[in-house]
Amino acid sequence: MTRGIDHAIPVCSVDELQDGEAVRVPREQAGTADDITVFNDNGEYFALNDTCTHASASLAEGWVEDGQVECPLHSGAFCLRTGEALGLPAVTDTVAHRVDVLGRIVFLLPDESQLTDGSGHEPA
């Protein structure tokens, strides 16, 4: 099933998330197993699970540039679009989430596989 925009979580206005910045949405608000971080990279918006798959740092503190976020602790990098781990020390992919901008508001649509309310575990 596809969750529509009515399930979207308003995160912030576009003015509050400048190029290179990130904002963390707590897991309680996102309804997901991990916090989710929304990024602005050169005017494009992306979202990934917040916790680095390598050593538990927060990607919200990472460096955002050229379609990647580099983890603050050990410089593992992830593709903002897909969540792919881009090489040592980051070797386990993370999860990418959908982001939509409506008007001037940035909305997060958490990936269903990450939801904790059970709706992510329905039979196909």
């Binding site: 740092a57 503190e61 990472g62 460096w63």
Partner: peptide, 10 residues
């Protein structure tokens, strides 16, 4: 201050 060190490195 890991984030600031990212900036410093660049």
């Amino acid at each position: 201050r890991p984030s600031e060190m990212k900036a410093a490195r660049r």
